[in-house]
Every structure is written in C-alpha cells, then in structure tokens.
C-alpha cells in the first residue's frame, strides 16, 4: 500500500492503486474526502495552497475505476474515467448522441480532461449537467463499500429532489450507459455553466419511435443546478401517441404537465416554472418524424 503523504499541518493524501485498498482506506477514514478529478472541490478553495481539513483519498490511480468496456447493450465506464477520455475513446461512437453532446457542453476541454464521470454524479452541492441525461437514458451505476455492493438504475440512488445519495463509505465504481435504445433526442443548456450560473436551465429528452408512434419517451430538466425535474406520468401519457400531436392533444398534455409542475414543484420562481413549461411545449410540438438532434 502506498504510504500517505503529509506535511505537518497540510492535507494528508492517500493514493491507492487498487479498489480494495481505496475501500479499506475509506472505511478506516470515514471523514476522508474522495478526490477524483478535483474540479468541484478546488472550485471551493480560495487559498493558493488548498487545505482540505480532512484526509484526501485520490481515486485517480485506482485501476479498476479507469476501465472502459463495451457490451452488447451498454458501455461501462469506471467512475474515474474523465469526460475527455469518454469523448476520445474508441467506444464513443456507440454512445447515445444526447450523452456525447451533453459531455461536450460540460465546462471547457481543460475541465473535461480533469473531471470524472463518477465525480460528476457525486457532487452534492449542485446537480450537474449529466445527471438528467443519465436519468433519461436509464443509465445504471454500481457503488461499493468495503462490505457491500449495490447496483441498479440511477433513479434508485436519487432522493426526492433527485440528488444522488451514497451511504456511508460508499464509492461510485461504475456507470453503465445503455446503447441503441432511443432513436430521437434533444438537448439544450443555457447559459453555459451549471456551477457558476444562478440562472442555468437545461432540458433534454430521448424517445423511441416506431413509424409515427412513440414507444417510449423520457425527458428531464435541470433548474439552476438545484433541481432535476422528471414527470414520469407525463412521459407515460405520451406512449403510444402518434406524432405530430394534434392541437387538442397538445393542450391536454400541457394542462396535465402544468398541473404537475404547479402542484409538486418546490422553490422555482414563476419565471423558472414558465421556462420548464415552455421547454415541455417545445418537446410536444416537435415533428418527431425524423431521427436525430432536435433543438
């Protein structure tokens, strides 16, 4: 095992190279900070020499967290794979276009070469750009502690506000992204930064159509990085419908969706509620008769 590195009052840093070592360290140091890419952690540091107040466990050198594998129906990324590596890997051509587009929208090339997909999910202060995308793709995660392994669709790991929840001493180890399930997609994010902007808004959807009928449709919205909204009942109502919808159908679906937003939504201002409703209207009024990006 690598010896920790310490300089008097400065941060203690562990650099394990294997997952078992990392999990064991985390179990013995429950207050330690997991350090993957460090982009979110360092954005909160104002000192030239960052001092974290707790030991760091760097996940950058853990072999099992850096793998990329393609299976028949999904691609699996280790949690420490950077967003830049996701775009560069040979498996990327099989990834859902909505996911690749969203990854390209995260930060800058320099940020993407540092930020990891696991770290992106695990940030607790804000809900970042890829969380809604992974949600609508029915992506799955695996999380491990020294004694437990849990895996399943991401929605099972979200709390009532769609924030990602880990139990004590758990580390996200793998993210699995299904491939080939959807043939329509749309994505827009305004303005550019979910971390720095108080007025961030993102909408995304994926759908599978068979001729003119929608077999499945998932959509989600990210408001200011604080709320991720997905109204499952609205999605279910659209299944089996023929697109383009009639004006009466659009009115009916808008009425239902708006009632859900008005009834259940917490916090956003009337302006932001209006943005969500308009984004949903945009999805409904798309032609959806051709595959590909619909903005």
């Amino acid at each position: 095992m690598n010896a920790p590195h310490e300089n008097s009052r400065l941060s203690l840093v562990f650099t394990p190279e294997h997952l078992g070592e990392a999990l064991s360290l985390y179990a013995r140091n429950p207050g330690a900070i997991l350090y993957a890419g460090g982009t979110a952690l360092l954005s909160k540091q104002s000192e030239r020499l960052p001092i974290f107040g707790a030991p760091l466990i760097s996940l950058k050198r853990v072999e099992e967290l850096k793998t990329i594998r393609r299976y028949e129906n999904f691609i699996e990324f280790g949690a420490a794979v950077t967003l830049g590596d996701i775009l560069r890997c040979k498996e990327s051509r099989f990834l859902p276009p909505v996911f690749k587009t969203a990854v390209r929208a995260v930060g800058t090339p320099a940020v993407r070469n540092t930020a990891t997909i696991g770290g992106h999910l695990a940030v607790t202060e804000r809900k970042l750009l890829l969380l809604p995308i992974l949600l609508i793709l029915d992506a799955a995660v695996e999380v491990k502690s020294q004694t437990t392994t849990r895996s399943g669709e991401i929605k099972r790991f979200l709390d009532e506000k769609n924030g990602f929840i880990l139990q004590a001493n758990e580390i996200i180890t793998k993210i699995r992204i299904p491939t080939g399930r959807f043939n329509l997609w749309g994505f827009s994010a305004l303005p550019g930064s979910v971390i720095r902007s108080q007025d961030f808004f993102m909408s995304c959807f994926v759908a599978r159509k068979n001729r003119f009928l929608i077999e499945k449709i998932n959509f989600a919205f990210n408001i200011d990085g604080r709320l991720v909204i997905r109204i499952k009942q609205s999605e279910d109502r659209l299944i089996g419908k023929k697109f383009p919808l009639s004006a009466a159908e659009i009115r009916e679906e808008m009425r239902f969706f708006t009632s859900k937003i008005e009834g259940e939504l917490i916090a956003p201002s009337p302006y932001k509620k209006e943005r969500i409703i308009n984004a949903f209207r945009l999805i409904l009024t798309q032609d959806l008769t051709k595959s590909g990006l619909i903005e």
Binding site: H5, V13, T39, S58, A110, T114, R196
Partner: peptide
C-alpha cells in the same frame, strides 16, 4: 484566476490540455 476558468495556466498533461491551477502536485 485559480479557478480553472481563464486558461492562462494551461499545460499539457499526458498530452491533454488541463488548467494547472486545478491540478495538485500529487496528481
């Protein structure tokens, strides 16, 4: 900026651009 936002500290790490203000020595 020390925030990884301005690009003036950009270097190549393993031939990929990074903001060196956002990379720590142990990495």
């Amino acid at each position: 900026c020390y925030q990884g936002a301005c690009g003036s500290c950009s270097i190549l790490l393993d031939n990929c651009i990074v903001s060196s203000c956002s990379i720590l020595a142990f990495e």
